[in-house]
């Protein structure tokens, strides 16, 4: 909190500061408990292996949460997240370095509100995009005092 990101200070093509995560199996257990998602592929290695997986895998919804954090960290308290989407295309595993990244694709004004659209994604340690998505935010404008 504290810093303000104004719509005027954002340009199309601009990169969003990346968010780096080092997920552990312990984090998956904490997420299972906090979210109520107890599907065993996220914490029971034998179960995951018997289901043809390489081991336990990260909850898609946890990656969705990191993409949310990527955006809320960037826009700060005065920005408002309106839309957040992602598609789970590839699996991610604990022990890897996972980075949430994004780029501004479009900015526009509609009904007096200052919108920014972004392409966002989760990248694994090999630089592969496993979870592409998008976000739409409303930012404060220098033309409307906070």
């Amino acid at each position: 909190m504290g810093k303000v990101l104004y719509w005027e200070d954002v340009t199309e093509g601009q990169e969003i500061p990346p968010l780096v995560k080092h997920p552990t199996t312990q984090q998956l257990v904490k997420y299972a408990g906090a979210s109520g998602d107890f599907y065993q592929i996220h914490y029971d290695k034998d179960f995951a292996l018997n289901n043809g997986l390489p081991g336990v895998i990260i909850h898609g919804a946890l990656k969705n949460a990191w993409l949310g954090q990527l955006i809320t960290d960037w826009i700060g308290e005065y920005g408002t997240l309106k839309k957040l989407s992602c598609q789970y295309r590839g699996m991610d595993v604990p022990g890897d370095t996972i980075t949430a990244k994004g780029r501004v694709t479009r900015k526009y004004v509609q009904d007096g509100k200052h919108y920014v659209e972004c392409e966002i994604w989760i990248e694994n340690g090999k630089g592969e995009r496993t979870t592409p998505g998008s976000a739409t935010v409303i930012l404060p404008s220098r033309t409307n005092p906070l």
């Binding site: 919804a61 408002t80 957040l84 989407s85 992602c86 598609q87 789970y88 998505g133």
Partner: peptide, 8 residues
């Protein structure tokens, strides 16, 4: 679960 689209 193939993904989610949220609107707030």
């Amino acid at each position: 679960d193939a993904g989610s689209d949220w609107e707030y």
